[in-house]
Design a protein around this nucleic acid. Structure first.
Length: 340
DNA sequence: TACCCGTGGTA
DNA sequence: TTACCAAGGGT
C-alpha cells in the first residue's frame, strides 16, 4: 500500500468517535477546528458541545454579542479565537449571505482562519484536495522522513506543506487529513510513540535509526516575561465589586478584571487615597505561554469621603459576573469573595 | 519576521 | 520543578 492508503486504512479502523465527526455541517466543523487550535481534544470537547447548543447555526452566533461569545469561551484561552469567530460569523452573513463558503480560497478569507483551518474545512466538508499541516502532521512527516529542517521557520513550513500536498494526491482528502492528525494524536505521540502499532514503522526513517524523539526540530524557544499584577478588590455596602474591562492589544482583550495596578517588582504595600487595605493575598503564580504573572489581590474597604473610583470602573455583584467574560486568574479568585 | 496570544496535562 | 506542547492565527 502507498503512504496515503496506509494512513486511510489505519484511520478508518482506529478513529475516535468525536462529536464533530458525526456532523457534515461546515459551520459545526469550523467551530470544532477553531476550538481545537492549540487545544487538546479533551479540553475542547465540552466547549464544542456548549457552542453547538447555544449557537446551533451561524446566524445564532452572528446575532450574539461578543461578550456572550467570550463568556462561553471563558477558561479555554487564546481568546482572540472567540472574538475572530464572532467576527467571521458576521462575515458569513454579510459577505456570503449566510451560506458557508465552500472552497479553500474563500474559507481562508474568514477572520481567524489560516492555512490549516481552511484546509481542514475544505477537505472535510467539500472534498477539496488540500493538505492540512498541524502539529501532528509536522511530527508524523518529520519522523517518517527524518527531516531536520526546523518546523518553525518559513522554509520548514513551506517544505512540510509541499510534502503533505504530495502525499495527499489521489486520496480521499477528508480521510487522509484526519488520518494524519489522528495517527499523530494516538500513535506518533510527542513523548512515547507507539511504533509497534504504527502502520508506517516499516518504512519510517527515524524508526529505523531509533531517533523518533529527535523530531520534529524546532529553532526557537519561547521566553516568558515576569510581570507583577496588583488587583484592587473593592466592594461597596451592597456587596458589589469594582471591575474594569481590558482594552488595547494585550492579553485578555475585552475581558473583565479587578482594577489593576501593574508594578515592575512585587509590591509590598499599597496606598491609595480613600482606600484601606484589609487583607492581601499571597502572590498567585499564573503561567501563560509568554508571561509569568505574579498576582496579588488587595482586598480594600472604602473610606467614603475621599474615595474616587476611576471613570471606567463598573460595579458588579457576584451574580452579575456570571455573564461577564473573566480570565481564569480572576475567575479563580471569585469564590474567595463569597467566603469572606 | 519575530513576537504575541491561555490554559492544562504530562514526565 | 522545569520543559514541552496541544486540530494555529494575527500583526
Amino acid at each position: 500500500m502507498s503512504f496515503g492508503e496506509e494512513i486511510i486504512t489505519w484511520y478508518n479502523k482506529n478513529k475516535r468517535d468525536l462529536p464533530w465527526r458525526r456532523v457534515s455541517d461546515p459551520y459545526k466543523v469550523w467551530l470544532s477546528e477553531v476550538l481545537l487550535q492549540q487545544t487538546r481534544v479533551d479540553q475542547g470537547t465540552s466547549y464544542y458541545l456548549k457552542f453547538v447548543e447555544n449557537f446551533p447555526t451561524v446566524w445564532d452566533l452572528a446575532s450574539a454579542t461578543e461578550e456572550q461569545v467570550l463568556n462561553l469561551w471563558q477558561g479555554l484561552g487564546y481568546y482572540s479565537r472567540a472574538r475572530n469567530l464572532h467576527f467571521a460569523a458576521q462575515q458569513i452573513i454579510k459577505e456570503f449571505n449566510g451560506v458557508f463558503p465552500n472552497s479553500y480560497k474563500t474559507i481562508l478569507t474568514l477572520k481567524g482562519v489560516g492555512d490549516y483551518t481552511a484546509s481542514a474545512i475544505a477537505s472535510i466538508c467539500f472534498d477539496e484536495e488540500v493538505a492540512v499541516v498541524d502539529g501532528n502532521v509536522y511530527r508524523v512527516l518529520s519522523r517518517y522522513l527524518a527531516i531536520d529542517t526546523p518546523i518553525d521557520t518559513t522554509e520548514g513550513k513551506k517544505l512540510f506543506k509541499k510534502l503533505a500536498s504530495d502525499f495527499i494526491k489521489g486520496h480521499n482528502p477528508s480521510e487522509f487529513n484526519q488520518g494524519m492528525m489522528e495517527l499523530g494524536a494516538l500513535v506518533c505521540t510527542p513523548k512515547k510513540p507507539n511504533c509497534e502499532n504504527c502502520p508506517l514503522s516499516n518504512s519510517c526513517e527515524s524508526f529505523a535509526k531509533q531517533t523518533m524523539l529527535d523530531f520534529p526540530i524546532k529553532a526557537k524557544k519561547t521566553k516568558q516575561q515576569r510581570k507583577f499584577f496588583n488587583f484592587l478588590v473593592i466592594n461597596n455596602e451592597k456587596e458589589e465589586y469594582y471591575f474594569e474591562k481590558r482594552e488595547g492589544k494585550g492579553i485578555w482583550q475585552n475581558m473583565y478584571q479587578f482594577p489593576l495596578i501593574e508594578t515592575p517588582k512585587e509590591l509590598g504595600e499599597l496606598s491609595r487615597t480613600g482606600l484601606t487595605v484589609n487583607k492581601v493575598s499571597l502572590p498567585v503564580k499564573h503561567v501563560l505561554s509568554h508571561q509569568i504573572i505574579f498576582a496579588k489581590f488587595w482586598e480594600c474597604s472604602i473610606q467614603t469621603k475621599e474615595f474616587n473610583p476611576e471613570s471606567n470602573w463598573e460595579l458588579f455583584s457576584v451574580e452579575q459576573l456570571e455573564e461577564k467574560p473573566l480570565p481564569r486568574l480572576i475567575e479563580n479568585y471569585i469564590p474567595k469573595l463569597v467566603k469572606s
